[in-house]
Design a protein around this nucleic acid. Structure first.
Ligand code: ZN
Ligand code: ZN
Ligand code: ZN
Ligand code: ZN
Lengths: 144, 144
DNA sequence: GTCTTGCCTGTTACAGTGTAACGATCGGCG
DNA sequence: CGCCGATCGTTACACTGTAACAGGCAAGAC
């Protein structure tokens, strides 16, 4: 990810090997990965990476917007947008193939802001996760 | 909850003591409760309720729309609406007081449907959870 | 009545998820 | 050099959730 590299220069020292490799592993996989799965992929014979280290790396990466946590799956995906400020994402999670698509919709953003303002609620973070079936899997199912 | 009682008659046999008491405990608390917290509240000296039983009761209650699971907290709240069919809720979770407010917005529903249709995604369940500060806590903070 | 069946519950055991605490290591700085 | 801050390794532990199996109980069949 080029965006990560750019950010890396800003925080020069902060983007350590473990954090970089954690991001790489998450980005290479096409589906959400659990922290323990990541630890396993980062481990080599004789060089084991503990899950707690992965959690710390993931904390760093999520704080800087490089990965997202999927609350309904206890898993992590790379950010594919580089959204600014309070811009939040909508995650489309396919129950068949397990893929996660991250989209941004100004329309949803607006209607959420509207509802929150009406309720007098000051938002800090937003979680919008939709489970269902992605377009590809729908087509596959109709054929088979 | 009257709604629960009404449903109880439909499923007469199904609404057992354990399930009823689980719903009561969740409804009495003003904030999301974890399954183990519920088990603790249901337990009496000499009569311990295991967490696994609570999970089964919660499965039943969520399937029938009497309680909701808060994915970002691994906790459960009573449903306060009795929403029909695919109508999904928006949860406003206060970081200060821990309260959860359940609201329904047709506007959000519409914009979500629109975005999903555009992406060719067939939704099955929706999770919308906003963390932030509720109106009451904002007022309290400004004073103190 | 008794037997079988299905559903709910109890119990144990275990897998998966996440954090606290402490120590070692490394780099920068006086 | 010694100090300080941040990162990382290691251990231990708490919390969340499920699988598997056995007992209880009500309802219907014989
Ligand atoms: Zn993103
Ligand atoms: Zn799919
Ligand atoms: Zn509800
Ligand atoms: Zn509050």
């Amino acid at each position: 990810m080029a965006r990560a590299e750019r950010l890396a220069q800003d925080l020069s020292l902060q983007f350590t090997t473990l954090r970089r490799r954690t991001l790489e592993v998450v980005a290479e996989e096409g589906r959400p990965l659990g922290a323990y799965d990541i630890a396993e992929r980062l481990s080599a014979p004789g060089k084991r990476v503990a899950a707690v280290s992965v959690y710390r790396a993931l904390d760093f990466l999520t704080e800087h917007g490089l990965v997202h946590r999927i609350a309904s799956r206890n898993a992590f995906v790379p950010c594919e947008h580089g959204h600014g400020a309070g811009e939040s994402a909508v995650f489309l999670i396919c129950r068949s193939c397990g893929s996660v698509d991250e989209t941004i919709s100004a329309e949803i953003e607006r209607s959420l802001d509207h509802t929150l303002a009406q309720a007098g609620f000051k938002p800090a973070s937003r979680i919008v996760e939709i489970e269902g079936e992605c377009g590809a899997c729908q087509g596959r199912q109709e054929e088979g």
